[in-house]
């Protein structure tokens, strides 16, 4: 029996496809998320909207909080480490979390290097804004890629930009001939082996999920139709007027993303979505973190 292989890391990412992963800050919220049909929860001390509002250095969560959430639910529990902070990731692995998110939502710990994710048995998800960034993270061992979007804004525009960029470049690489793939590798600043692989298969070697700005069931349906394979919802659930109903509605809309009648049904009378931030009010772009 062999644990920690790339097959089992990627395998869990595959099992989460078509589902919704929700940010939760305590055990009570984790139970609400599980009750609504979340496939996993992301345990953290503050949702991105509050990190943005409060400022200061954002770090890995207290192990006590993560353990409380692990005990409260039966679904997978993820947690965030700072970019490049492999010691935080080691602690999360020691806690037995199911996935580590090396996340730009926390304050980066290393301005040049991401974590060497091959050194871990726990799988990692990393954010990306374009195909080159996605392939660099995969070459470092990431078993799942998510769009960065712009966390904590409730504005889907950045996630759409990132998904269109990643998927559009994938389609373009698929049209390239063998010689042009070397040029693509140079342009993407990514290993040529990975570029050749995506050219042959037409998809990333790991699942592509969407994160950063999903606030409504229609947002989820939009990104799933664009080609995301599952969605992360951060502030969008617990900053809404009725979190339990919003959570359930986003789960339904993600599963039935091509069925507008169904999305309409679950969207009716949901109450207020998170208020959100737009344009200059966003302040520092978290998506610019990561290299």
């Amino acid at each position: 029996m062999t644990t920690g292989t790339f097959t089992v890391k990627r395998g869990l990412a595959d099992m989460l496809r078509g589902g919704v992963i929700m940010d939760v800050v305590n055990a009570e919220q984790a139970v609400v998320a599980e009750d609504a049909g979340a496939v996993a929860v992301m345990a953290l001390e503050r949702v991105p909207a509050d990190i943005r509002r409060d400022g200061g250095v954002a770090r890995m969560s207290d192990p006590l909080l993560i353990e409380g959430i692990q005990h409260a639910v039966t679904i997978p529990v993820m947690a965030k480490a700072r970019i490049g902070h492999f010691a935080e990731a080691q602690v999360l692995q020691s806690l037995g979390v199911d996935f580590v998110d090396e996340s730009e939502v926390l304050t980066p710990a290393d301005e040049a290097h991401h974590i060497d994710k091959w050194a871990f048995t726990v799988p990692f998800v990393c954010g990306a804004t374009n195909l080159g960034e996605a392939l660099r993270r995969i070459s470092e061992g990431a078993a799942m890629i998510r769009s960065k979007g712009e966390a904590g804004t409730g504005n889907i525009v950045e996630a759409v930009r990132h998904l269109r960029s990643i998927l559009g470049s994938l389609r373009a690489v698929g049209q390239a001939d063998a010689a042009e793939l070397y040029g693509w590798a140079k342009e993407l600043q990514a290993p040529v082996g990975l570029v050749q692989e995506i050219a042959a298969t037409g998809r990333l070697p790991v699942p592509l999920f969407c994160a950063g700005g999903i606030a409504t069931p229609s947002d989820a349906a939009l990104v799933m139709q664009l080609g995301a394979e599952a969605v992360f919802v951060g502030s969008g659930i617990f900053k809404s007027g009725d979190p339990a109903r919003m959570a359930s509605a986003v789960v339904e809309a993600t599963a039935h993303f091509e069925d507008a009648d169904h999305v309409a049904k679950v969207s009716r009378g949901l109450g207020e979505a998170m208020r959100g931030l737009e344009g200059a009010a966003v302040g520092e772009r978290l998506a610019d973190r990561g290299w």
Binding site: M1, T2, T3, G4, T5, T7, V8, G11, L12, T74, P76, Q93, G96, D98, F99, T121, V122, P123
Partner: peptide
């Protein structure tokens, strides 16, 4: 028994 083999870090190939 759901997740009877453990959490993700106990996931395995055999």
């Amino acid at each position: 028994r759901r997740n009877g083999y453990g959490r993700q870090q106990q996931s395995f190939e055999a």
